[in-house]
Design a protein around this nucleic acid. Structure first.
Lengths: 283, 283
DNA sequence: TTGCTCCTCACGTCACGTGAGGTGGC
DNA sequence: TTGCTCCTCACGTCACGTGAGGTGGC
C-alpha cells in the first residue's frame, strides 16, 4: 500500500494527476480512509497506471483511454480508433512540416535582410462559386494587355445580365488560362457571382467555378495595372514555403467604388505541396 | 465599409473570431455604431486580418501576433521567436512521428492477432539517483545465474549499511554490464537508494546512477526468476516502436514484502530512437 | 409580420497546474 | 510545536463554438 505521494513517485506522475484520474473514475485507489480521505494505492495498480500513460501518450483522450481499458471497445473498434488516430497524426505531422517550412522561409528572409515586409499570404480553401461569364483572348498576361480586354468584357457582361434581369449577388472573379492562339496568349474569363441556373440559355455562360482545395491568397490594393509586384511576391512566397503553383491566380474583386486606384482585390493561386515536403504525411 | 458578416466572408473567418479579435484589441473595426453596436470594417483591413491569420497559422498565440504586428518586437526579437518556434515544431514533429510509429506497431499487432495484450510500456525520463552498491560477476544474464549472485550481495550490502548506520531511503536498483571475464559473463551491481556522501569511505561504494534521458519502462509482477518473458516483451516493444536498446535494463524494486512471488519490479531500459525515425526532428 | 443580421453575455472545451485554506500523524 | 503529507474547493489555461435572449432595418 502506497500513499498518493509514494505512488505518484513510483509512477512518475503528479499527485494532481492521480487525484484527477480518481475523480473521473479512471484509476481509483484500492482504499480511501473514511476519516481523513487519504487515498491508498497498491503496487499492482502501477500496471494500470502505465497502460493509462501509454495510451495517453498515443494521443487518446482520457475518455477514450477509459473505454479501451474497461474493455468497452471490441478489437475491431480499437482498430478503428487506431486507424483514425494514425490519420490524425499524419495530417498533424504534415501540417507542422508545412509550418516549419514557413518559419524557415521567414528566417531566411530575415537573414537576407530582404526588407520585404513578410508577405501576408494566407492558405485557404476556396469554395465553389456559381458565376456568369464572358471570355476573350488577350495577347499576353501583362496588365497592359489584359486591361483593354477585360474592361469591355465586364461592361458587356453587366449589360447582358441587366437585360436578363439577373442581379450579381457577389464579387466579380476574373481568371486566366493559357491559350493555344499563340505562345503568350491567354484566355481571359470575366465572371461575376450570380444565383441562376447553369447553362447557356442566356447570351452569357453560367457555370460553377470549381473549388480550390488549397489556395495561397493575398490582398492587392490599388489598380490592377500595378498587380505584378503583388503577384510576384505571391509566387515567391509559394516557392519559398514548399508549394508549387497549379495555374494563374484568380482575381476576386472585394471592393470597387469606380475609382481603380482604390480597388481591393484578392489573388487566389491554386497550389499543392511540392513532392519533397509532402511525402512524409501521406504514405 | 463592410458589416461584420460580409467582412468575415471576405476574410473567410468566422464572425465570432472577428468579435474576439475586437475584444482583445487585435483587429478593431474602423467604426462602431454607437446606437446599435454594429461593427463596420473596410477592405483595407483585410491585409491586417491576413497577417493575423498567417502568423496564427505559424502557431503563434494571439498575444504574440499582436506584439509582432504592433511592432513591439525588434527584428532580432522576431528572429528569436521564429527560432524558438522552429525548435518547438521540430520536437512536435518528432514526438508525433514517434506516436505514429507506436500506433502503427499496435495496428500490426492487432492484424497479426498476436493476442499479446498490448504491452504497457511507458517512455519516461529517469532522474539520477544516489545509491550504495556492491558488485560481483555472474556467469550469464539468465535469472538462474543472477539470483545466486545477487541475493548474497544484497544481504551483505544491507548488513554493511546497518554497520555504517546508513538507512536506505528508497528502492533497491540492480543493474548489469557485460564483463570481460567471459563471453557471457555480466557484472552484477546490487544497489539501494541512500542519502550519503559519495566515495569509498565505507566498505561499499556510494555513487550516483546517471540519468536515463529516455527509458522504456515496464512493470514486472512476481519473482525475478520469471522476468524473462517481461524482458523479452519489453525488447520487442522497443524494436517495434522505432527505438533501439542502449544496454541492459535496470531493475527497480517497487515492492518487496519478503515473498518473492509478490514482488513488483520496474524494468528501465535505456533507449534511443533508431536513426531512420530520428533524422527528421533534429537536423 | 417574417427573415435576416447584428448585439451582449456566459458556459463549455481538456487535462490538469497552481494556489488558498485547512487537517492529521510523527 | 514544527514539517510533512494529505485533503477539498475553485480559478485559470487558449481561442474561440455554441446557444440564450433580445434588437433594428428591409
Amino acid at each position: 500500500m502506497f500513499a498518493i505521494g509514494d505512488f505518484a513517485r513510483h509512477g512518475r506522475v503528479s499527485v494532481r494527476m492521480l487525484r484527477h484520474y480518481d475523480a473521473i473514475g479512471l484509476l481509483q485507489p484500492v482504499a480511501v480512509d473514511p476519516e481523513t480521505g487519504y487515498r491508498y494505492y497498491e503496487a499492482a495498480q502501477l500496471s494500470r497506471l502505465n497502460r493509462i500513460i501509454a495510451l495517453k501518450d498515443l494521443g487518446f483522450t482520457l475518455q477514450q483511454v477509459a473505454s479501451v481499458l474497461d474493455e468497452q471497445v471490441s478489437a475491431a473498434e480499437l482498430r478503428g480508433m487506431l486507424i483514425l488516430r494514425r490519420a490524425e497524426l499524419q495530417s498533424q505531422i504534415s501540417a507542422d512540416t508545412a509550418r516549419l517550412t514557413s518559419v524557415e522561409a521567414r528566417l531566411l528572409s530575415i537573414e537576407h535582410e530582404a526588407s520585404e515586409p513578410a508577405a501576408d499570404v494566407v492558405i485557404k480553401r476556396i469554395a465553389p462559386v456559381r458565376v456568369a461569364e464572358l471570355t476573350a483572348i488577350a495577347p499576353s498576361y501583362e496588365p497592359e494587355s489584359i486591361t483593354p480586354v477585360i474592361q469591355p468584357l465586364y461592361h458587356d457582361l453587366f449589360e447582358r445580365l441587366a437585360a436578363s434581369r439577373i442581379q450579381p449577388c457577389g464579387p466579380g472573379i476574373a481568371y486566366y488560362e493559357d491559350s493555344v492562339a499563340s505562345e503568350t496568349a491567354v484566355q481571359v474569363h470575366a465572371t461575376v457571382t450570380v444565383a441562376a441556373e447553369p447553362g447557356d440559355r442566356h447570351d452569357f455562360h453560367v457555370l460553377d467555378l470549381p473549388e480550390l482545395p488549397v489556395a495561397a491568397t493575398v490582398i492587392h490594393r490599388g489598380s490592377m495595372d500595378d498587380v505584378m509586384p503583388t503577384g510576384q511576391a505571391l509566387a515567391r512566397w509559394i516557392d519559398a514555403n514548399g508549394y508549387r503553383s497549379l495555374g494563374y491566380p484568380r482575381e476576386l474583386t472585394i471592393s470597387y467604388t469606380g475609382n481603380r486606384d482604390e480597388m481591393v482585390t484578392e489573388l487566389q493561386a491554386p497550389i499543392a505541396r511540392t513532392k519533397q515536403t509532402d511525402r512524409r504525411g501521406h504514405e
